[in-house]
Design a binder for these strands. Structure first.
Lengths: 123, 123
DNA sequence: TAATCAAATGCAACTTAGTTGTGACTTAGA
DNA sequence: TCTAAGTCACAACTAAGTTGCATTTGATTA
């Protein structure tokens, strides 16, 4: 387990378990949001989906992980970082992180999701 | 039925039915996106959810209606108009339409969803 | 190191928005 | 009015995510 992840557990007063570190390990390696299925495939340990979702909920509560819905009725997860936008292509379903300048928006924005056709799929 | 809706059916070569006009009537009156339950409540006729979703699918195909997922695992529908953003408050779950200036984004953007805390809920 | 106990896990059953198959019924057009 | 193509209601289904509960695990204390 990486030092970075160990520190996350300590900072947020979360009990260490192999299941939890395995989830965070995957999210740390990925550089874009992943859903349950994708994370499951990459994880080194096998765990029940109930365990997965409960741990994700814990991470969310602590602000370690951020989640959002794409257009496929699935939750996508990523390690929290500065607020940035996600572009979801309706054709290839690829999710990419992008920087956008919103200008002024009233209220506090926590997530931004754009949908459409990415430049690869756009004719 | 309003002339506007009658015209929509003709323009898009969609067969007229009471179920269909009832759905569009509700969407026309609403000035923000609604989900199935909300539309059902407001509709003057009773229809099966299968009928509802199949008709919505038809409208989408024709580009009359636009849909997106909020953060509650439900689809929200509205009449298509110029591309604008939706702000979903994580506290009061109110969905509001807002104008944002995205600057340059590669690809073609069809929908923009912002989530966070609206100014009413923000302390 | 062993005992303790709150917290985490696995399993199975459940929830629910949305989807699909099918036979009966409408609608538009001749 | 008659007919074919399309639409409808009903019921059964799908699947991501949730919940209850008995068992296991890991941080803490002795």
């Amino acid at each position: 387990m990486s030092e970075q992840i160990k520190t996350l557990f300590e900072e947020h007063d979360i009990k260490f378990t192999t299941a939890r570190s395995s989830i965070l390990e995957v999210l740390k390696e990925a550089h874009h949001p992943l859903n349950y299925e994708q994370i499951k495939e990459k994880m080194s340990v096998v765990m029940d989906k109930a365990t997965f979702y409960r741990n994700i909920a814990k991470f969310e509560e602590s602000g370690i992980v951020h989640k959002f819905e794409a257009d496929d009725r699935k939750w996508y997860f990523e390690l929290s970082s500065t607020t940035h936008a996600h572009f979801i292509c309706e054709h290839c379903h690829q999710i990419t992180c992008i920087d956008v300048d919103l200008g002024k928006v009233e209220g506090e924005v926590k997530s931004i999701v754009l949908k459409g056709t990415c430049k690869e799929c756009h004719v």
